[in-house]
Design a protein around this nucleic acid. Structure first.
Length: 259
DNA sequence: ATGACAATCAGAGATTGA
């Protein structure tokens, strides 16, 4: 089963680029972030016509996550538990039914800039809630993964120019520590486990020719529970599509599972 | 030190992002 995560930076603006990639890459499941649309305005039938079941958790203008799946999805849940006051649409879960069922969590972790400030506080508080949910996934022992835009540069080798990120919310010690604390529950980060070498990125800023200079960062990750890591076959980044017409500033990260 | 770029909503320019 091929499962991908892709921050598309707006479903309306990305409809052609996303469609082209889906047709070429043929993922069984695509976890999308930053759909920037409500559930009502998401072009649901467009993806149903491509053979996907569509589950969204959107809001107007900002954020928003979705799952597209060619295989049946069950037990869909929207919103990260732990704060009933939180109105930002950043989390969706579902179980995909294959040879072996896998629990899928799609996430759009808060950016956190400027740092320090209330947005950074929100990021760390959100990560505390993520830790709680992640721990439950480990305890459940069902194969599960958490995929999305983590807005975390885990290590220096995940940035072309780590020095410019030193004080940024994506690279601050507190951010990375909160991410490591989740990893240390027993998760396997799929891409690093397949490709330990430095120099792979999943985001290039639109500004200052970042793509042409390969001035990127790796902030889109897929974390696997031990039972899910047993099934991991491969993990890749489709970096080439960043060079196309009207691209997102992120590119897809995908893995294949033996399930 | 600043801005560079793109998307959204709205129908200009502020806000957000990373």
């Amino acid at each position: 089963m091929k499962i991908a995560t892709f921050n598309i930076n707006g479903i309306k603006a990305r409809l052609p680029a996303l469609t082209d990639w889906l047709v070429e890459a043929q993922p069984d499941v695509a976890l999308l972030q930053e759909i920037k649309s409500t559930d009502e305005t998401f072009p649901r039938t467009h993806f149903e016509d491509l053979g996907y079941q569509v589950e969204t958790h959107g809001q107007k203008s900002f954020n928003g996550v979705a799952i597209l799946s060619k295989l049946p999805l069950e037990d869909i849940s929207r919103g990260l538990p732990g704060d009933d006051e939180d109105v930002q649409a950043r989390w969706i879960e579902a179980t995909v039914v294959g040879k072996q069922a896998v629990r899928l969590c799609g996430l759009y972790l808060p950016n956190g800039n400027p740092c320090p400030g209330p947005k950074y506080d929100y990021k760390l508080a959100w990560m505390e809630r993520l830790y709680t949910r992640a721990k439950d996934l480990i305890v459940d022992e069902m194969p599960a993964l958490m995929a999305g835009d983590y807005n975390i540069i885990p290590q220096i080798e995940d940035a072309a120019r780590p020095e410019v990120w030193r004080e940024d919310a994506l690279f601050r010690p507190e951010s990375r520590a909160a991410y490591r604390r989740i990893l240390n529950l027993g998760f396997t980060e799929a891409f690093r486990s397949c490709h330990p070498a430095p120099g792979f990125y999943s985001f290039w800023d639109y500004q200052a020719g970042a793509w042409n200079r390969n001035d990127g960062i790796r902030i889109d990750h897929i974390l696997l529970t031990p039972a899910c890591a047993d099934l991991l076959q491969d993990c890749q980044i489709d970096a080439d599509i960043r060079a196309r017409e009207k691209p997102s500033d992120h590119v897809p990260v995908w893995l294949s599972l033996n399930n």
